[in-house]
Amino acid sequence: MVNIPLAHDLLWGMTPAQLPADAPQWAVESLAAGQPVVVRRALSAEGFVAVGVRGVLREQRLAAFMALDSIACQVSPEALCHIDSERDLPAMRALQQLRPMLDDCGWVWGVSGSAGFELASGFEAMHEASDLDLILRTPQLLMRNQARKLMALFDQSLCRVDMQLQTPFGAVALREWAGTSARVLLKNEHQACLVSDPWNPQEQAA
């Protein structure tokens, strides 16, 4: 039994037959090769989940919907924290460098983006200039000074590190929350909106 898919989870089991009729050939080939799809933030019909299909090129991304009963395997970003790659790339060296600090930070964290995709699937998705994309599960408020301390560590890393804070009401970029703007962009299934407190449900209702 799979859990309810969350944004950034990787799912296996979607077939080319579930793609729209006008889907590009690269998307058909990706699924035919057995690649997973990644859960994205968007509303979907009952029994389906919004996903993205990855191609070889950066611009090859297709929004689609996968039937929940097609899910054969599900991997979350936090399941990838301690998996290593045999490829010696800056993103992987940065992950090894940051892992002890992230393990000790007191929050649940995970690997997403191209690094997570490759670690989970074995399909090459990273290159020398790839960012390291991370998530941090933050059910309670992460103070802005804590965010700035994290960013200071990331800024010393071997590649650009982008972290998303996963609040109960959506996701916000750590880089924004660590900044000086009074309001930051919060993204969820319904909308993207500017808020001053991503952990306050009243703001999203406003």
Rank of each mutant, 00 (worst) to 15 (best):
M1F: 12
L6T: 14
A7Q: 12
H8I: 06
D9W: 11
L10F: 08
W12G: 02
T15D: 07
P16T: 06
P16I: 09
P16N: 05
P20F: 13
A21G: 09
A21W: 06
P24I: 11
Q25D: 13
A27F: 01
V28P: 01
E29L: 12
E29S: 15
S30T: 05
L31N: 00
A33G: 15
G34Y: 04
V37Y: 07
R41C: 10
R41Q: 13
A42H: 01
L43E: 11
A45T: 08
E46K: 01
E46W: 02
G47C: 06
G47K: 12
V49D: 00
A50L: 09
V51R: 03
V51M: 01
G52V: 04
V53D: 04
R54W: 04
G55S: 04
V56A: 12
R58Q: 05
Q60G: 13
Q60M: 11
R61M: 13
R61D: 09
A63W: 07
A64W: 03
A67K: 10
L68Y: 04
D69T: 12
D69L: 05
A72R: 08
S76L: 03
P77R: 07
P77D: 04
A79H: 09
A79N: 06
L80K: 01
C81W: 02
C81I: 04
H82E: 13
I83Y: 07
I83W: 05
S85N: 02
D88N: 14
P90W: 07
P90G: 01
R93T: 02
A94I: 11
L95E: 10
Q96W: 15
P100C: 11
D103N: 09
D104C: 03
D104K: 06
W107R: 15
W109S: 02
G110T: 13
V111T: 05
A115S: 15
G116K: 05
F117G: 08
E118H: 09
A120V: 01
S121N: 00
G122L: 08
F123A: 09
E124M: 13
E124T: 14
M126Q: 14
E128G: 02
L132T: 05
D133I: 00
D133P: 11
L136T: 05
L136N: 06
R137S: 14
R137T: 10
L141K: 14
L141P: 02
L141N: 06
L141W: 06
M143N: 14
M143I: 11
R144I: 00
Q146P: 02
Q146L: 01
A147E: 00
K149S: 12
L153Y: 12
S157V: 03
S157C: 06
L158C: 09
V161P: 10
V161E: 00
D162F: 00
M163G: 03
P168S: 10
P168F: 05
G170F: 07
A173R: 00
L174W: 13
W177Q: 08
A178I: 06
S181I: 07
A182E: 15
A182R: 11
A182S: 13
R183T: 14
V184M: 02
K187I: 05
E189F: 10
L194M: 08
P198D: 12
W199D: 03
P201H: 04
E203V: 10
Q204L: 15
